[in-house]
Computed example of a mutant assay.
Amino acid sequence: MSFFSLDSKRFEKFTFNGKFMILCKVGEYEKHKSTLGEKNKSIIYDAYLNNDTFSDVQILIGKEKFVGHKLALSAHSPVFQRMFCHEMKESISNKVEIEEMDPKVFTEVLRFMYAGKVENLNDTAEEILIADDRYEINELKLICEKSLISKIKLENILELLSFAEKHNADYIKKYCFENFVVKDLETFVKLEGYRDFLKSHTTLLAGWFTEI
């Protein structure tokens, strides 16, 4: 027993020579990342944090040496991925030399990439964010930005905005715009140091003022 008959006038417009036609629109499928997978991908490498087992690269910061795994580093950092996927000196020598970074900061960057967590963030958020921006570790960068906005007040907002602009911290800039500039523009433009800030960040402020 069928639910409907193809001879029914109701479905005549969908039939041709007694055959039932199905019309559909084909579009490009947008691939979505699994939130669960993103959240837990670091846990896979937790046991190998600074562990020689299966390590295939050394990271040198001054006199400090770290051991790493190209797969784990590449999974979190597009910069490391490009470094190891092309015939760059780091890929050939299996050594990465990092300058102008405190080994303690890189320890926390590694901890995040391998274990999905970070320690001492209150004291090192700015330094870690600089490292994140340098190696494009966006997940940890956002964590640092959220930590820093808890310290924002009128007395230091221009300083933190300058920092955010220099290191592409868009979350901080958006927070400052929505919670300080939009809410009290008159006070913002009267801040000590605003004129100097205006001269060096004209593009940022021009973009903001067009939205108010």
Rank of each mutant, 00 (worst) to 15 (best):
residue 50 N to E: 11
residue 102 D to N: 11
residue 124 T to K: 05
residue 116 G to T: 05
residue 36 L to Y: 08
residue 157 I to M: 08
residue 211 E to S: 15
residue 166 K to F: 00
residue 24 C to N: 11
residue 175 Y to I: 00
residue 33 K to R: 06
residue 46 D to K: 15
residue 32 H to W: 03
residue 159 E to M: 13
residue 188 F to Y: 13
residue 57 V to A: 05
residue 42 S to I: 06
residue 74 S to F: 11
residue 36 L to V: 10
residue 43 I to Q: 11
residue 37 G to H: 09
residue 212 I to C: 13
residue 71 L to R: 03
residue 212 I to A: 04
residue 188 F to M: 07
residue 118 V to M: 08
residue 179 N to E: 15
residue 55 S to M: 09
residue 156 N to T: 10
residue 206 A to R: 10
residue 137 I to V: 15
residue 58 Q to P: 03
residue 191 L to D: 05
residue 188 F to E: 00
residue 46 D to P: 00
residue 121 L to C: 10
residue 26 V to G: 01
residue 31 K to F: 12
residue 138 N to I: 05
residue 206 A to Q: 03
residue 101 M to P: 02
residue 67 V to Q: 11
residue 110 L to C: 11
residue 96 V to W: 02
residue 93 S to K: 15
residue 66 F to M: 07
residue 60 L to W: 08
residue 134 R to W: 03
residue 177 F to G: 00
residue 1 M to G: 08
residue 74 S to I: 09
residue 91 S to R: 04
residue 209 F to Q: 14
residue 137 I to A: 01
residue 190 K to F: 04
residue 35 T to G: 07
residue 130 I to C: 08
residue 50 N to H: 08
residue 37 G to E: 12
residue 49 L to H: 08
residue 175 Y to V: 00
residue 124 T to W: 03
residue 52 D to M: 08
residue 184 D to H: 07
residue 115 A to Y: 03
residue 30 E to G: 10
residue 58 Q to Y: 11
residue 38 E to Y: 05
residue 79 V to M: 13
residue 65 K to S: 15
residue 16 F to G: 03
residue 199 K to V: 15
residue 179 N to R: 07
residue 4 F to C: 10
residue 187 T to Q: 14
residue 40 N to H: 13
residue 208 W to P: 03
residue 96 V to A: 04
residue 23 L to R: 13
residue 5 S to F: 07
residue 3 F to E: 10
residue 176 C to V: 14
residue 110 L to S: 06
residue 3 F to M: 02
residue 31 K to P: 03
residue 22 I to C: 07
residue 9 K to V: 02
residue 63 K to D: 13
residue 176 C to L: 05
residue 47 A to F: 10
residue 209 F to R: 13
residue 145 E to F: 06
residue 107 T to G: 01
residue 37 G to W: 02
residue 120 N to R: 10
residue 200 S to Q: 10
residue 115 A to R: 02
residue 97 E to T: 14
residue 143 I to N: 01
residue 71 L to P: 00
residue 187 T to H: 11
residue 203 T to C: 06
residue 201 H to L: 05
residue 209 F to T: 06
residue 140 L to F: 12
residue 68 G to R: 03
residue 162 S to D: 12
residue 181 V to M: 11
residue 117 K to R: 13
residue 60 L to N: 10
residue 184 D to W: 12
residue 111 R to E: 14
residue 203 T to M: 08
residue 168 N to C: 15
residue 180 F to S: 06
residue 72 A to H: 00
residue 77 S to H: 01
residue 27 G to V: 11
residue 84 F to I: 08
residue 24 C to A: 13
residue 166 K to M: 09
residue 77 S to F: 02
residue 204 L to N: 12
residue 26 V to E: 06
residue 96 V to D: 00
residue 98 I to Y: 06
residue 74 S to H: 06
residue 104 K to I: 07
residue 154 L to W: 15
residue 14 F to E: 07
residue 27 G to L: 04
residue 8 S to R: 02
residue 153 K to S: 12
residue 97 E to N: 11
residue 125 A to I: 06
residue 152 I to F: 05
residue 114 Y to H: 06
residue 104 K to H: 13
residue 78 P to L: 14
residue 193 G to I: 11
residue 11 F to V: 12
residue 101 M to C: 14
